[in-house]
Nucleic acid binder design. Structure first.
Length: 300
DNA sequence: GCCCAGGATACCT
DNA sequence: AGGTATCATGGG
């Protein structure tokens, strides 16, 4: 059992971080979060300013949860109005984690037009059936399968993991990644927009999935994924002129460009905080509180 | 049975 | 450039 004592100027909230829908392989079992990251089977809980965990060393935990990132400065930089301000208050301590690129890519291919529980099920099935077993005192768990393990499968095999029509896309991605083991390094070395284009060359990866992988795996914090919830929040609170138009490619582009300019280099954090309060936050907007241009400009 | 969900794609006009 | 049908699955 290991412990990390959190510095007061490095706020962190484990529950918010793991339950906000950015990662799909964590679950709570009697007060502990259990998850598999790479080859590590991790068990962790938070007690005030202490993180108590097994299954990985402290350096791994710090890196995965980005505990050394200066969250207060980041949040100060995006805190530009009452809407995002309320989300920051409510979700303080939520951090964007550093996910393994391959698992993250497959996860968001499997996350199109579906809901979070279904994605978790798909990833869990692929891991149980085709991942390397990891033996732990608490039982056996499975690493997420490497590209070559998935590349061998037929679409039928993948469909039995309940991925549905996404099977071809998962298979193609696996074949490509197995043939190009350096695919992630090459994307990581590109500038943001080029990395985005590279990801969108995978079948089944459009703007939204690409932005999620850029944000959750590659640490491009200017990425601003627009799903149906974010589309709703952004059109109601920030871009009323786009309300009721549906999230067409042009609308998607306008929202993400606005967000990058308005929230700045850490727009992705704004996105995740807004997503975190998607339901409670929308309730409070029964009378849509459109921010007027004046409010937008003199903030901060 | 319905509608919705961390959408993308091919195919229209 | 801008609309639209379709895809497979699970939750509510």
């Amino acid at each position: 059992m290991r412990t990390i004592v959190l510095r007061p100027d490095r706020p962190f909230n484990l529950d918010r971080t793991l339950s906000c829908g950015q990662a799909f392989r964590w679950e709570v079992v009697d007060g502990w979060w259990n998850g598999v990251v790479g080859e590590e089977a991790i068990r962790i809980r938070q007690d005030g300013d202490r993180l108590i965990f097994t299954g990985a060393d402290s350096r791994f935990i710090r890196d995965y949860f980005r505990l050394d990132q200066d969250l207060p400065s980041i949040l100060a930089s995006i805190d530009r109005d009452p809407v995002i301000g309320a989300a920051i208050q409510e979700c303080m301590g939520l951090r964007l984690i550093r996910q393994p690129p391959w698992e993250c890519l497959v996860s968001y291919i499997c996350a199109t037009n579906t809901n979070i529980p279904a994605v978790k099920r798909r990833i869990a099935l692929m891991a149980e059936r085709y991942g390397r077993p990891i033996e732990r005192p608490g039982g056996r768990v499975y690493a997420f399968p490497e590209p070559d393990a998935l590349a061998e499968l037929s679409c039928t095999d993948l469909r039995e993991c309940k991925v549905g029509y996404r099977a071809e896309a998962v298979r193609e991605a696996a074949l490509y990644a197995a043939d190009n083991p350096d695919w992630a390094e090459r994307i990581a070395a590109l500038p943001f927009e080029e990395a985005r284009e590279a990801l969108m060359r995978f079948r089944g990866v459009g703007p939204k999935a690409a932005d999620c992988v850029l944000l959750f795996a590659f640490g491009f914090f200017e990425a601003f994924p627009v799903d149906v919830w974010i589309h709703r929040i952004m059109t109601e609170a920030y871009l009323p002129e786009l309300a009721g138009k549906g999230c067409t490619p042009a609308v998607y582009e306008r929202i993400r460009k606005f967000a990058q300019e308005y929230f700045g280099d850490y727009a992705g954090y704004a996105q995740e905080y807004l997503y975190c309060v998607r339901e409670s936050g929308m309730q409070k907007m029964v009378k849509p509180t459109f921010l007027n241009p004046a409010t937008r400009q003199n903030s901060r």
